[in-house]
């Protein structure tokens, strides 16, 4: 019996664990803070975290293939600038421009990594710098105001049915598509196989290069869309934003149980990981609001770090003993 439970935990434990964690945090917040369960907090939480959920999903694909993408944050910043620049033409133009910016960056990453065989860490670091530089050049290092007269800001500021932000709705659609890709399309399975052992995947006659290319391109696209949310939600293209987002995304993916070495990964669990990190941030803000003690933003970072450490410790504790059987 215990082995059955342990086996279940090893198979799904990480994702169920994270999801239970998310529920517990929500319960804690609801019981402890008056306004936590309010519609306002819900929609602003979902709106703010849509960006992080998006880049986390893209990062999850890349990490599944055994790679890493450090450029997601600055690519999102660059996309926020290009999208804001086209905001006068309305959402129907600005959104594709932002996403295309991200896809282009992803294609560049894929070209360097898959064709030129540059290690992902280095290649995406180069893209990180290049995207940041480009964003600063075209924005003249200032925030780029959006056209408030167009429908551009509706995406980042309006809700469906009064509580579900458009940005989160779109993110959910993308998430379902990516989940189907990973679990039910051959391409997604090849991504996992390539991440487990690329040589082997090739010997099996699978085109792992193609799968890895798609992972980086999709990841870039997700970052691009996150950039559009950023510009739309804050009313401006933000060339200086995005640094550190890649680390948040990687942390979320890890919390969701995806192996950093590749070969294993789950979109829903990664989303739960992103929500969990976001919730902790949200709860700490409420805690500050209570006034019992005052945590600066820096202390919040320390707490998040400690939390991450505990999660990974648990991850190791739960999965390692089973590997020994």
């Amino acid at each position: 019996m215990t082995t059955l439970v342990r086996r279940h935990i090893a198979d799904h434990g990480q994702s169920t664990g994270v999801m239970i964690g998310v529920l517990l945090l929500i319960l804690l917040g609801t019981l402890r803070y008056d306004n936590f369960a309010s519609l306002y907090n819900l929609s602003s939480f979902l709106n703010y975290n849509a960006m992080f959920v998006l880049i986390t999903m893209g990062m999850c694909l890349v990490i599944m293939t055994g790679g890493i993408d450090l450029s997601v944050g600055t690519v999102a910043a660059l996309s926020s600038v290009t999208a804001a620049g086209f905001s006068a033409h309305g959402l129907e133009v600005a959104l594709p421009v932002g996403v295309l910016t991200g896809l282009a960056a992803g294609a560049l990453n894929a070209f360097m990594i898959v064709i030129m065989r540059i290690p992902p860490f280095i290649a995406t670091l180069a893209t990180l710098l290049a995207a940041k530089g480009t964003a600063l050049v075209i924005s003249d290092a200032r925030t780029v105001p959006v056209d408030w007269a167009s429908n551009f800001t509706q995406l980042g500021m309006n809700n469906v049915a009064g509580w579900l932000p458009w940005s989160m709705l779109l993110t959910v659609v993308v998430g379902i598509a990516l989940w189907l890709l990973v679990e039910h399309r051959p391409l997604g399975r090849v991504m996992l196989a390539a991440g487990d052992n690329e040589d082997t995947a090739n010997l099996m006659g699978l085109s792992s290069g193609w799968a890895r290319t798609w992972a980086y391109v999709i990841c870039g696209g997700c970052a691009g869309l996150a950039g559009v949310f950023l510009a739309s939600g804050f009313g401006a293209g933000q060339p200086l934003e995005g640094l550190g987002w890649e680390l948040t995304a990687i942390a979320s993916v890890v919390v969701g149980g995806t192996l950093l070495t590749g070969g294993r990964g789950s979109i829903p669990a990664s989303v739960a990981g992103a929500l969990m990190l976001g919730l902790i941030f949200n709860l700490l803000n409420f805690e500050n609001g209570l006034g019992t003690f005052n945590l600066s933003a820096y202390w919040q970072m320390v707490i998040r770090g400690a939390f991450l450490f505990i999660v990974i410790l648990l991850q190791v504790k739960i999965t390692r003993p089973l590997a020994g059987d």
């Binding site: 051959p186 399975r189 996992l192 196989a193 082997t200 099996m204 699978l206 070969g263």
Partner: peptide, 16 residues
């Protein structure tokens, strides 16, 4: 063996 260990037996047989 040219198989991917983290994936299921099924996938290792049918993949491709």
């Amino acid at each position: 063996l040219n198989l991917v260990g983290l994936r299921s037996v099924t996938e290792n047989i049918v993949m491709g």
